[in-house]
């Protein structure tokens, strides 16, 4: 239930000061995270049951989810795509973009076969750069209202973020 419901909450609307323009394509993909944090803390104070007896725990939890989602470029982009009605980033979606999958598999095999610490550090650095450039690609695509490219790059970003975790044995 909460999963279905979540799709209908526009997290941008919970932070009207920082995110006045709303989600892309109207507003920018980039977010002023400092301002978001301030607005979040204030909103959280007001939602706190000790301050506002009318507030419910759900308000506080929703704010928390909204903040975490908007802070993280991958989660933020998935949220934007969900607001646009996309199902390609959902839990049951499957990917058959052969070119992307081949590339991911190749990179992952290279990393898993590499044992030299210096070489691994280089591969990790390359992956961090890949993450940065993919986020840039997503941002660019939203600014051009190119949802298809934004979606493709968001899927790709998910894989590189996953690889970043694998460098630290969290796969």
């Amino acid at each position: 239930m909460s999963k279905i419901l979540r799709r209908w909450i526009n997290y941008y609307s919970l932070f009207p000061k920082t995110l006045a323009a709303g989600p892309p394509p109207k507003g920018p993909f980039e977010i002023d995270t400092k301002s978001l944090r301030n607005e979040y803390l204030k909103a959280q104070q007001q939602a706190h049951p000790d301050v506002n007896s009318g507030a419910t725990a759900a308000d506080s939890a929703t704010l928390g989810s909204a903040y975490r989602t908007l802070l993280d470029p991958l989660l933020r982009s998935r949220h934007i795509l969900e607001l646009q009605g996309s199902t390609a980033v959902g839990e049951d979606a499957s990917l058959d973009d052969e070119e992307l999958l081949m590339n991911i598999l190749m990179v992952r095999e290279e990393v898993s076969e590499c044992e030299d610490p210096a070489e691994r550090a280089k591969l990790e650095q390359a992956n961090n750069e890949r993450i940065e450039s993919t986020i840039h690609k997503i941002s660019q695509a939203y600014s051009e209202n190119d949802l298809e490219t934004a979606q493709k790059a968001t899927i790709e970003l998910g894989y590189w973020i996953k690889l970043r975790a694998a460098f630290h044995g969290e796969d």
Binding site: V89, E91, A93, S94, D97, L101
Partner: peptide
């Protein structure tokens, strides 16, 4: 066969 699950970042050959 090469497939992936975008939500969790899995890839399978």
């Amino acid at each position: 066969g090469l497939v992936g699950a975008p939500a969790c970042g899995d890839v399978m050959r």
